[in-house]
Amino acid sequence: FACQWLNAHFEVNPDCSVSRAEMYSEYLSTCSKLARGGILTSTGFYKCLRTVFPNHTVKRVEDSSSNGQAHIHVVGVKRR
C-alpha cells in the first residue's frame, strides 16, 4: 500500500524537495483515515521510498525557527 500511495501522491521533479517527516506523517494520516492495518514503520516507509524513487537524494535543511534542528528533505520529488 505504501508504494502505491507514494506513486499516487508524489512524482519525480529534479527541482523540488519535500520534507521526509511530512511525507511519513501524511502516509500515517491516510492509513488512519482508511483504518488500514499493517502500517509501515518509518524505516520501512523510507525503504519503500527508495524503491519508488530510486534516484532521489536527501538533504539536511537547517531550520532557524526550531532551535537549530535540522529536517531531512527528499530531493527530486514533489507532491502531485
Rank of each mutant, 00 (worst) to 15 (best):
Y46P: 01
G44E: 12
S65Q: 14
T51C: 12
I72K: 05
T41G: 10
S19V: 11
Q4F: 05
I39C: 14
S42A: 11
P14G: 05
M23G: 00
F53Y: 15
I72S: 12
V52F: 01
A21V: 05
S32A: 07
T30G: 13
F10L: 04
P54W: 04
A35Q: 13
F1I: 01
V58P: 06
G37L: 04
H73N: 05
F45V: 00
K47P: 05
D15Y: 05
Y24D: 01
K59N: 14
I39W: 08
M23K: 00
C16P: 01
F1V: 04
N13I: 06
V58T: 09
D63W: 07
S25T: 09
A70I: 11
E11D: 05
P54F: 03
L49I: 13
I39M: 14
S32T: 11
N55C: 11
V12Y: 02
F10H: 00
I39R: 12
E11F: 02
F45K: 00
Y46I: 05
E26W: 07
L34S: 10
R60I: 05
A8F: 07
W5G: 00
D15A: 07
Y27W: 03
S25R: 10
K33N: 01
R50W: 12
E26K: 04
C3P: 01
H9I: 04
N7T: 03
A35P: 10
S65L: 05
G37S: 14
E11Y: 05
S66F: 14
S17P: 01
N55W: 13
H56G: 09
S19D: 11
C48I: 05
V75H: 11
Y24H: 01
A8I: 06
G76Y: 02
V77T: 02
A2G: 08
F53P: 00
H56K: 01
V75C: 07
R20Q: 15
V74T: 03
G38I: 08
S17A: 15
S17T: 07
G38H: 05
P54K: 05
Y27C: 00
W5H: 02
D63L: 06
P14L: 07
S65M: 06
C31K: 02
E22N: 15
F10K: 00
A21E: 13
A21M: 06
P54Q: 05
H71T: 15
R60V: 11
R36V: 13
M23Y: 02
A21W: 07
I72R: 13
Y46M: 06
F10A: 00
V12W: 09
L28R: 09
C3D: 04
C48A: 05
F53V: 00
W5C: 00
S66V: 02
H56T: 12
L40M: 10
M23A: 04
L28G: 07
C31A: 14
W5M: 04
I72N: 15
L49V: 13
E22T: 09
R60K: 11
C31P: 07
Y24S: 01
E62D: 10
V61L: 08
S64A: 04
H71R: 13
N13F: 04
S32R: 12
A70K: 12
H71I: 06
C31V: 13
S66P: 10
Y46K: 14
H71E: 14
L34C: 11
R20P: 05
R36D: 15
Y27F: 10
T51V: 11
R20T: 03
V18S: 11
P54L: 03
R50H: 15
E62F: 13
N55G: 10
F45T: 01
G37C: 04
K33L: 09
M23C: 09
S25K: 04
W5A: 00
Q69I: 10
Y46N: 15
T51H: 13
Q4W: 13
C16R: 09
D63T: 06
A21G: 14
V61I: 07
H73D: 14
H71K: 08
R50V: 13
R36S: 13
M23P: 01
Y27I: 00
R36Q: 10
V77I: 14
C16V: 10
V18Y: 14
S64Q: 08
V12R: 11
C16G: 11
G37R: 10
S66Q: 13
K59Y: 14
V58F: 03
C16Y: 15
C48K: 05
V75G: 15
S25G: 14
H73W: 12
T51I: 06
Y46Q: 12
G37Q: 05
C16W: 08
Y46H: 09
V75R: 12
S29C: 07
R50E: 11
V12G: 14
D63G: 13
C3L: 06
K47E: 11
W5E: 01
D15C: 03
G38L: 10
L40W: 01
L49Q: 01
G44Q: 12
T30R: 12
T41I: 05
E22P: 04
T51N: 15
V18R: 02
G76D: 03
A8D: 06
S65V: 08
H73V: 09
E22A: 12
L40Y: 02
K59E: 15
C3Y: 07
T41L: 09
G37Y: 10
L34N: 04
R36P: 08
R60M: 05
H71A: 13
S19R: 04
V77L: 14
H9N: 07
V61S: 11
T41R: 07
F1R: 15
A21S: 12
V58D: 01
L49C: 12
S25F: 03
V75T: 03
K47G: 05
T57R: 05
N7Q: 12
P14R: 08
V61G: 15
V58M: 12
A2F: 01
T30E: 12
V75A: 13
A8L: 07
I72V: 11
Q4P: 02
T43N: 05
C31S: 13
E26S: 08
C31M: 10
V52C: 03
V52D: 00
L49Y: 01
H71F: 05
C16H: 03
N13A: 08
C31N: 10
S42F: 12
S32Q: 08
V52W: 02
H73I: 06
S42R: 03
Y46L: 06
L28P: 00
A21Y: 04
L34T: 14
E22G: 14
I39T: 15
H9A: 08
G68R: 11
F45S: 00
G68A: 13
E22M: 05
A8E: 10
S17E: 15
A35H: 11
S29N: 04
N13M: 06
N7A: 03
K47W: 06
P54M: 08
E62P: 11
R60Q: 06
D15W: 04
F1A: 06
A70P: 14
K33Q: 11
T41M: 09
W5T: 00
G37W: 06
S19I: 06
F45R: 00
E11Q: 03
S32V: 09
L49G: 01
L28F: 15
S64G: 10
S32P: 10
G37T: 09
A8K: 15
T41K: 10
A35L: 08
S64V: 05
P54E: 09
N67T: 15
C48E: 08
T57Q: 08
H9D: 02
V52E: 12
E26C: 05
E62A: 15
D15M: 06
G37K: 13
G44N: 15
P54T: 07
R36E: 12
S25W: 04
T51P: 07
R20E: 15
G76P: 01
L34H: 14
H56M: 14
T51Y: 03
V12E: 09
V52H: 05
S42L: 09
V18E: 12
S19L: 12
K33T: 07
V12F: 10
C31F: 06
L28M: 14
L49M: 15
